[in-house]
Design a protein around this nucleic acid. Structure first.
Lengths: 196, 196
DNA sequence: GTTTTTCCTTGATCTCAATCAAGAAGTTGC
DNA sequence: GCAACTTCTTGATTGAGATCAAGGAAAAAC
């Protein structure tokens, strides 16, 4: 199975796409592999590409007064990019880097994606549904940040996304949860004790 | 000018819509006025309608262990609903209530909106762009909650959304900022002092 | 207009997480 | 393999904001 088929699988979850539409889209896909120290996307630039992560994990970083905060992660099988910038064509605030040793990505340029929207039947529909799903993720996150205690957020993550805990260094998880690495370390050890 | 024209204005910001498409959509709009104690949307129900606020302010509430948190507000001239529920057709977690004495709303049902998506030329495009904009709001909010100190979030709100400060009771703003009313009251008085 | 209720402010205390610090464990690179 | 570096853990201290409490201002109800 080609890596592009992973993308087709994602689309098929949303709508039934015609072979012609799929061809039009997939012909415009390019491929690139990133190493651990690469920046897939740099802050303060207009995001040119929409990426699909075929293998690896990436994180979204915001720099703020000497500190860096990891706001989100993306795993293989999902699209990612500095969305706000990609959508508005304004410089973005996110730096995107691999968490894993490598990140293998298919990507399509903004210009090509506009062609897909204009010249396929279901492009807009997939685009709408994908945007809706991204919205839901962020909306859930807002509720989580406002209503759930960091310790409980970590417990929830252990249940719902155990792969996050295994694949992501503690310090980045801590940042994502809005706490310091020290505090997360203590949370983790308190869980160990209560579980025997 | 009819209230529906407010909606047309919003659409015109996104795409040029044909008279036929607008007619198809606007014929499906209904109108309802809500009082201060009404619940526009109840938690644990599937959201049936997408609302457009013609007049007033509403807030989004999450109930969590006896406490209620205000996660967001919507102002006149904007669409709102318990989106995640509206999209997924699963029971939602948000209660939506007016902040102002009344909230005047146009609304379209989920079923009718699917008809619009299916039978208009630009419905999907508007839907995609609207979803993208909602995503951007939530993404910005995530960054704000993770990287900005509550006091600075309040100062930012004063600059960017001064109408929020004037129209929304302090206790709801505090909840939205993730702090207690007492703390926001102290922040506010410290700003007063430093401004003379 | 008066009562009732809600909302906001201010003060005192307490608690939890940040910070500072240092050492252990684990990785990476030569 | 060893050195250099990064990451994680643990401890002591500090501080910002939550909580508890009460009085005053404002708004709503009658």
């Amino acid at each position: 199975m080609s890596g592009k088929d992973l993308i087709k699988e994602q689309f098929d979850k949303l709508v039934s796409i015609t072979p012609a539409d799929w061809l039009y889209f997939s012909e415009r896909l390019q491929f690139k592999q990133f190493g651990k120290k690469d920046r897939i996307t740099q802050a303060d630039r207009v995001e040119d590409n929409l990426y699909f992560l075929a293998h690896g994990v990436v994180r979204f970083i915001v720099h703020n007064e000497e500190k860096e905060t990891t706001t989100d992660f993306s795993f293989s099988g999902h699209f990612f990019c500095s969305y706000s910038s990609f959508i508005t064509r304004q410089p973005g605030i996110f730096e995107i880097r691999p968490v894993t040793k490598t990140a293998s990505c298919y990507y399509i340029s903004w210009n090509d994606l506009q062609q897909v929207y204009a010249n396929t039947n279901c492009g807009e529909k997939i685009g709408r549904m994908a945007a809706e799903q991204q919205f839901i993720r962020k909306s859930d996150r807002e509720v989580s940040l406002l209503t759930i205690h960091p310790k409980d957020r970590y417990l929830q993550l252990m249940e719902e996304q155990p792969q996050w805990i295994h694949q992501i260094p503690l310090k980045h998880l801590a940042s994502y949860l809005g706490i310091t690495p020290e505090t997360l370390s203590r949370i983790r050890s308190s869980i160990m004790k209560s579980n025997g």
